[in-house]
Simulated assay, not measured.
Amino acid sequence: MRFPVTVHRPRLGPREFTVIRPARPPEHALLVEDDRFLNAYVDRPAAGLIGGLWGLAATSPRALVHVPLRRAGDSGDAGARRLDLVLLHHSLQFAPSRWKELRGRLGAGHRRTVTVCTDRPEIDWEALHHAENRDLFHQHVHAETLFVTGSARAFRETAGHFHDVAAHGPGHTADNRHYCAQLGHGDDSARDIHIEYSDAWAGEAAPR
């Protein structure tokens, strides 16, 4: 899978960071937080793009992958909050509390085209439940952004959830059926992300 991105290299103090963003944010995608769940609503192009960016996070351990999903003026539905998304490798040890300042220094960035493998690896489900398993996601919400921190393996094994929704969601929706995937792999404090296919977009309104 090939798609365009912009690469930014902002600095905070003496340290330079690499931030990768899609050249064009997904047009029909929302990430919504309520009291207990994280819900992602996507159409086919958005699901494919986010899956590609998820896979990019697996091969870019020194970068923060930023997916802008909020729109100007978004207020979200009652009781919910719309979020952007940042994917990063745990070895970066980046503090979410610094994100707002870093985001303000991104600038225009440089355009590049990246290639990401979309083959879905076989998952050892039994190993995920071992006490010594370190391939887990950790989540933080800060500055209207969900941070998903994990290992290359965790990102590689879960990118396929988005590709699955992109491939199979349109056919199910045509028959008025719900199609979704549940993205887990988190530690005890992490919430699963419910990824739901939707082609019912009206302007910037969230699917209902």
Results as ranks from 00 to 15, higher is better:
P61H: 03
H28E: 14
E16P: 05
A206K: 00
T173E: 15
A181Y: 02
R103N: 06
W125D: 10
S97F: 03
L136H: 14
A159V: 00
P96I: 02
V7P: 04
T149Y: 08
T158N: 08
G48S: 14
L183W: 00
A46M: 05
G73F: 05
A152N: 10
T173V: 12
L88W: 14
R98F: 07
L102V: 06
A46E: 04
P10F: 05
H90L: 14
P25T: 09
F147Y: 05
D119S: 05
I193Y: 05
H28S: 13
A131I: 14
L30M: 11
P121K: 06
D35P: 03
D35W: 07
T173L: 11
R71D: 07
V65E: 00
G51F: 00
V165W: 06
P25R: 15
E157Y: 13
A174E: 12
P10Y: 02
A202S: 09
T6Q: 10
A78N: 06
T149D: 14
D175C: 05
H163L: 09
S189K: 11
T59R: 01
D188G: 15
M1T: 02
R103H: 10
L64M: 05
F37Q: 15
A143V: 12
V32L: 07
R208S: 09
H8A: 06
A190K: 09
S97G: 13
A152W: 01
E122Y: 10
G107H: 04
V7E: 08
G104P: 02
R82I: 12
R15W: 12
H172Q: 13
G150C: 11
D164E: 12
L85T: 10
R11E: 13
V148Q: 13
G52L: 02
G203M: 02
D77I: 07
D34Q: 05
A95H: 13
P121L: 02
A154T: 08
V86Q: 11
R191Q: 11
D175V: 01
R71E: 11
T59E: 04
F137I: 03
L88E: 15
L56Q: 05
D34V: 07
R81M: 09
P170Y: 09
L183C: 04
R2W: 05
A40I: 13
R111D: 08
W201P: 07
E27H: 12
C180S: 15
A131M: 11
V86Y: 12
H142E: 15
T115G: 14
C180E: 14
T173P: 06
A154F: 04
P10S: 01
H185A: 05
R177C: 08
H8C: 03
G51S: 04
R81S: 13
L146Y: 03
A29M: 07
P26D: 09
G52C: 11
S97R: 14
A57F: 04
R21D: 03
Q182R: 08
A40T: 09
H138L: 13
N176L: 13
A23I: 02
V86I: 15
Q139H: 15
G171Q: 12
D119W: 01
F162K: 03
A202K: 09
A202W: 08
H163Y: 05
E204Q: 10
F17W: 14
W54F: 12
G109R: 10
L53P: 06
L106V: 00
R9S: 12
